[in-house]
């Protein structure tokens, strides 16, 4: 009874028509059908945030979103936001602060940080830590990630 589901959505500004399985996650769809690989599979169950993408402008964990349910929606991944000044600033700050080691968590981290900074002026370090609490990093110990995000927040305000 496995039939395909026709979906139509916007991904990184591009109109996409595709067929997905009922059990296909948005993450799997992005990576295997569209070859967009900046969103990554870590835990696959909503804990780690490496799969974070924007769905209608808000960060979600694409490993637990069904692709079929993204029909008609706007999806953005980090690679589709390279021209945005805030993203660029965060990327540079992550580099200068040494907030990237293996880099696996970085796209999700930057996307989450950008979404937060866009809506919150003058956050404290604690606010930043809370905002990033759904994104796990096995390498850096977080301090440099918070430093890098804080530096951009200070420049913004």
């Amino acid at each position: 009874m496995m039939e395909g589901y026709a979906i139509e959505l916007t991904v990184n500004g591009r109109r996409v028509c595709a067929e997905v399985r009922a059990d296909e996650t948005l993450l799997e769809f992005l990576r295997t059908q569209l070859r967009i690989i900046d969103a990554k599979l870590g835990c696959g169950k909503g804990d780690c945030g490496t799969c974070t993408v924007l769905l209608d402008g808000r960060p979600v964990k694409s490993c637990i979103v069904l692709a079929a349910s993204a029909d008609g929606k706007d999806v953005k991944t980090l690679s589709g936001m390279q021209e945005e000044p805030l993203i660029k600033a965060l990327q540079e700050s992550f580099v200068t602060h040494g907030a990237v080691q293996c880099g696996f968590c970085t796209p999700g981290m930057i996307l989450t940080a950008a979404s937060y900074l866009r809506e919150h002026e003058n956050p404290s370090r604690d606010d930043i830590r809370r905002a990033l609490s759904g994104n796990l990093c096995r390498c850096t110990g977080y301090k440099k990630i918070v430093d890098a995000t804080e530096a951009v927040a200070k420049r913004n305000t």
């Binding site: 009874m1 009922a22 059990d23 799997e28 696959g44 069904l66 079929a68 029909d71």
Partner: peptide, 21 residues
């Protein structure tokens, strides 16, 4: 297509039907 990549991100879900009222 890179099948390894595919299995990497596949759900461990059994088959089901999806309906959207």
């Amino acid at each position: 297509m890179n099948t390894q990549n595919q299995s990497n991100t596949r759900l461990l879900l059994p088959e089901f039907e999806y309906v959207k009222p």
